[in-house]
């Protein structure tokens, strides 16, 4: 049985439809990323899964339960990191984490949670004195307490410095290795590429592309880029040219190996060195930019 099953989900805010017929499922031990521009419907989808938002239509099941009607059954197995959850600023980091541990049923070591998020040195500091990045790390610490079966992370590394982001990715990797299922939203495509087994790209409340990273980018053309040579390209390669900037040419092709060989042969024939030559397959970023445009 899938950990999360979402069928034809629709969510509205008054007359505005924020989520319009979304379907996906997440299997145990899987990392599933919801991607999309601001306002695409990612957070609303998560809120429906968390039971915070009553769907206008469709069906949501988490561990086989309705997250609104059977909140307790879902929450005791789920760690949630909100995009914009708040803290009582008067409490210290340790007091906040200990309170959260007492409010839940999952057993765990608060000190260890803080240590994993590099917050031990800040444990006795009032939450209102934390930086934005430290607050995000505290959010993660609360969400992972007691090793939940499912972790819902809404933009977990927004506001984190590169080192903290890497450490958070490492932590998420450890949780996945331990069998945790993870549903996350992110603005960082490299984060989805680093963590996710499958992704879904949302636009205007609908999933416009979904699948494994390979699936999502498989249909996209590969790219060959290089500094513009002094000789004009032959017609067959020039036809692949899409755009260029700062003296760079970019060719898009669905036959990377064949067209790269042709380009290199042409360069050899004219005794040219193709400077800054790069060739790569389609990426998640290409897919994302292709569907949200």
């Amino acid at each position: 049985m899938a950990v999360i099953e979402v069928t034809d989900l629709r969510c509205t805010y008054g007359a505005h439809t924020a989520v319009d017929g979304v379907d996906f499922s997440v299997e145990r031990g899987e990392v599933f990323a919801l991607l999309g521009a601001n306002g695409a419907g990612k957070t609303t989808t998560l809120e429906a899964l968390e039971g915070h938002h009553a769907p206008a239509g469709g069906r949501v099941r988490v561990f086989g339960h309705d997250p609104r009607a059977e909140r307790r059954a879902v929450r005791r197995r789920t760690g949630v990191m909100l995009q914009d959850g708040g803290f009582a600023g008067e409490l210290t980091v340790r007091e906040t984490a200990e309170l959260w541990a007492r409010l839940g049923s999952r057993a765990g070591d608060v000190a260890h949670d803080l240590e994993r998020l590099d917050l031990t040195a800040r444990a006795d500091v009032a939450v209102e004195q934390l930086s934005g990045g430290e607050r995000r790390r505290l959010e993660v610490a609360l969400a992972i307490h007691g090793s939940p079966d499912l972790l819902v992370l809404d933009e977990p590394t927004t506001g984190l410095d590169p080192e903290s982001r890497r450490r958070t990715w490492q932590l998420i990797g450890e949780l996945v290795d331990a069998g945790t299922t993870i549903l996350l939203t992110t603005h960082y495509l490299e984060e989805a590429e680093a963590l996710a087994h499958r992704v879904a790209i949302l636009r205007d409340g609908r999933i416009v592309r979904a699948g494994s990273l390979g699936d999502v980018s498989a249909a996209l053309p590969a790219r060959i880029s290089f500094r513009a040579p002094p000789h004009p390209l032959p017609d067959d390669l020039a036809a692949l040219r899409t755009h260029g900037r700062l003296g760079e040419l970019v060719l898009e092709t669905h036959h990377l190996q064949r067209d790269l060989r042709r380009l290199l042969n042409w360069a050899d024939t004219h005794d040219l060195t193709l400077e800054r030559l790069h060739a790569r397959g389609g990426t998640l970023e290409d897919a994302f930019l292709g569907v949200i445009a």
Partner: peptide, 8 residues
């Protein structure tokens, strides 16, 4: 909102 994301 945070409290509602927990088990209470």
């Amino acid at each position: 909102k945070r409290l509602r994301s927990g088990e209470l």
